[in-house]
């Protein structure tokens, strides 16, 4: 288990999805924490060291974009995977509106659009952590 040292934070307001992500990463031997919104995640990230964060886009209190922008500033080495509902054009459009509204360029390492496969996600995470 070469992944034991790596620590991952899962941020998602959907309980089921969050728990699933946690389970999947734990299966691979990562150390996994989870948060239900950007604010909670921000608190955790300031407390612990994380190698990688997967975050949802739309969340109450602090949404994904806000959270990512904060992380980019304070933790430039942190790998960020943005997970979004994507899927429909409406959501995509809405997301772009949202990003535009924030008024800043958001740099993420990877933008995972739902639906994606387990292998796809795991290989992307593994690849990012090896960099």
């Amino acid at each position: 288990m070469t992944n034991t040292q790596k620590r991952i934070l899962v941020v998602d307001d959907d309980d089921m999805l969050r728990e699933t992500h946690v389970m999947v990463f734990e299966d691979e031997g990562y150390q996994v924490d989870s948060a239900i919104n950007g604010q909670e995640a921000w608190d955790l990230i300031n407390k612990n060291h994380y190698d990688l964060v997967t975050t949802d886009l739309f969340m109450p209190i602090m949404n994904g974009i806000e959270f990512i922008l904060k992380c980019q500033e304070d933790f430039p080495s942190l790998k960020i995977v943005l997970v979004s509902g994507g899927g429909s054009d409406v959501e995509a459009e809405h997301g772009q509106d949202f990003i535009k509204f924030m008024g800043k360029r958001v740099n993420v390492d990877i933008f995972l659009k739902k639906p994606f496969s387990l292998i796809e996600m795991l290989s992307i995470v593994e690849k990012l952590l090896q960099e």
Binding site: D14, M16, P115
Partner: peptide, 8 residues
């Protein structure tokens, strides 16, 4: 999308 992704 969220539950679908979860199932997936």
């Amino acid at each position: 999308n969220s539950p679908i992704q979860a199932i997936n």
